[in-house]
Write a protein that binds this DNA or RNA. Sequence first.
DNA 1: GGAATTTACTGGTATATGCCACTAAATATG
DNA 2: CATATTTAGTGGCATATACCAGTAAATTCC
Lengths: 162, 162
Amino acid sequence: MSAKHEEDGVWLYCSNSAIRRAARQLGQLYEDAMGDTGLKGTQFSLMSQIAYSDGPTLKTLAEAMVMDLSALGHTLKPLIRDGLVELEPDEKDKRVKRVRLTAQGVAKQREMTARWQVAQDRFDATFGKEKSQELRRVMSLISSPEFARTFSKGDEDQASKA
Amino acid sequence: MSAKHEEDGVWLYCSNSAIRRAARQLGQLYEDAMGDTGLKGTQFSLMSQIAYSDGPTLKTLAEAMVMDLSALGHTLKPLIRDGLVELEPDEKDKRVKRVRLTAQGVAKQREMTARWQVAQDRFDATFGKEKSQELRRVMSLISSPEFARTFSKGDEDQASKA
DNA sequence: GGAATTTACTGGTATATGCCACTAAATATG
DNA sequence: CATATTTAGTGGCATATACCAGTAAATTCC
């Protein structure tokens, strides 16, 4: 760390900073491209995953999203308040609550998907469709429990080959 | 969107969701690897960028970090409160405030850098050192103003070649 | 030079996200 | 079966991060 040029910064050295920074930028770009839908990109992602899953419990949804359980609960609050999502206690296990979209939520999610496609298409056009898919695969790898396990053990590689 | 397997989700289709999810995971991994330092990873990143920069203004720092100016201001609050960072009004332009680490902030940042290196090394070991650097480059590209411009215009590629 | 506009920052409000402590329900144990 | 332990959620608190509406200082434009 010595020279201070423009375009230069910690993100060129710290992978964590780099990915967070890119996440902020991409979040903005998608948000803008989707226009004002009344919902944030994160809310759309969450609703989409709920729709994509089959009546997930808060726990399993949190794991899938790689989110803290309580964070998920907090994030769902506004969506529940606005009648887009609802929680239903599980019959068998009374500790468990299942998450699902309401009819209104389903409609909203569908409506937003069209707008999302615009953003996604722009990303593919800008970044490259192939690279885009590859990026998602890499992000998915980093988000996997296996990756976390290997990382935490502080062991030598296993997921790399470069 | 049809089959509902495990390990499957919106992150395999939405680049925005994918990167956010990975950011959450990586944030956790770094945080854990660094141990309890009294500061969050984001705070460390911010302090490092401040140290790396040369008396940046709030504006330029926000741009470098790809953060909203007001978000940066809010994020700095706790650091200022804890005496790690300080703002100094610019002499020439009284609208401007420059950001810098206090002596205590410099010490803290140095101390944390050692711990950060552990996390970064683990990431490199798990993900691959080469791939890791490439990842940072890609994240940096996505975070660049040029990328944002191209994306926003909705134009065809320019940054891709895949 | 004075009004209009732009620029840099502040404060309020809302969502995003994590940790911790607590509760209730299910499961394991003796 | 009664108790210990684990599991799933909830609520409080703190930081992360964005948008919007001011405010003040600098710049632009007659």
